[in-house]
Amino acid sequence: MRKLLILLIPSFIFARILIQGAMPIEIDTLVNAMNDKKVVKIGSYIFYEGKIKGRDIVVSRTLIGLVNASAATTLGITYFKPDIIINQGTAGAIVEGLKLGDIVVGDRIYNANSYKTPKSLYTINPLAKEPMIAPLTLLDTNNEDLKNEYFTSDETLVNKFISLAPKGVLKVNIASADAFNKEILMLHLWNKTYNASVEEMESVAAAQVAKAFNVPFLAIRIVSDNLIEDIDYTPSIAIKLQELLIKIIDKF
């Protein structure tokens, strides 16, 4: 039995985790907590390889936006071969009730940039936008189109994070787009269209690439603003989420 345990345990202990953040404020606390740190730059994308509490960690600064997140995730997977990807950072709440510092995990993650509109020569009508799934298409194992209306966080990772995090973590839908949107009516539209509670600019792209490579994925966000309730943008709140990850990463 002892020999069997020796064979089985290493794959669990030494699982490598890729943790992503778009901005310095979203990764610096993690990077500063790393031991045996090595910096790897591939093109415009920086990765920090090392250990936190004995766990093999790669911290990736994806840069802001969906294209950057896609590129950084692809590079992170192909170069570092992670077993788990955690995309984390700040998000803006678009519903009442979410406060500064609340933590959410992405249940369904939508690309709010992916839409189609009816033909119109002289008018622009945001309410006419309908979600389009073509840009979200991947190939299945038989090379057939696998159409995705949305992407999801890995259920096991979601449940594990919620069990380790403080009480009050919510599972929500996330709307991702290349937009820092302060138009309240547009935020209401995203809530209505996707039943989304928060919006941000990276996680759907990372989730799509993770699914393409079959890597378990988890989106975690901390609320940095809520324009519906006139709570202004506070990017430094990102530090609290990183501190939480550092606290629980050895149990993940």
Score class of each variant (00 low, 15 high):
residue 46 I to Y: 07
residue 28 D to G: 04
residue 60 S to Q: 07
residue 52 I to E: 14
residue 31 V to L: 09
residue 27 I to R: 00
residue 46 I to A: 14
residue 60 S to H: 01
residue 45 Y to G: 01
residue 19 I to A: 05
residue 40 V to M: 08
residue 36 D to R: 07
residue 29 T to C: 06
residue 48 Y to R: 02
residue 32 N to L: 04
residue 57 I to N: 11
residue 39 V to M: 07
residue 18 L to A: 08
residue 44 S to G: 05
residue 22 A to L: 02
residue 30 L to A: 02
residue 52 I to N: 12
residue 57 I to P: 03
residue 39 V to A: 03
residue 42 I to D: 13
residue 38 K to P: 08
residue 37 K to T: 15
residue 54 G to L: 12
residue 42 I to F: 13
residue 51 K to S: 13
residue 20 Q to E: 12
residue 46 I to G: 09
residue 35 N to V: 11
residue 35 N to K: 12
residue 47 F to A: 08
residue 32 N to T: 03
residue 41 K to N: 11
residue 20 Q to H: 12
residue 41 K to Q: 14
residue 54 G to H: 06
residue 52 I to W: 05
residue 39 V to T: 14
residue 35 N to F: 00
residue 54 G to V: 09
residue 45 Y to V: 05
residue 43 G to Q: 13
residue 32 N to P: 10
residue 54 G to N: 11
residue 43 G to Y: 11
residue 50 G to K: 06
residue 56 D to M: 02
residue 21 G to P: 04
residue 29 T to S: 04
residue 36 D to S: 13
residue 52 I to T: 13
residue 55 R to T: 03
residue 52 I to V: 15
residue 40 V to K: 11
residue 32 N to F: 07
residue 42 I to N: 08
residue 52 I to S: 15
residue 40 V to Y: 12
residue 52 I to C: 14
residue 34 M to I: 09
residue 29 T to I: 01
residue 28 D to R: 06
residue 51 K to V: 08
residue 46 I to H: 10
residue 21 G to H: 00
residue 55 R to S: 12
residue 19 I to D: 03
residue 56 D to Q: 13
residue 34 M to V: 10
residue 35 N to Q: 12
residue 47 F to H: 14
residue 60 S to R: 00
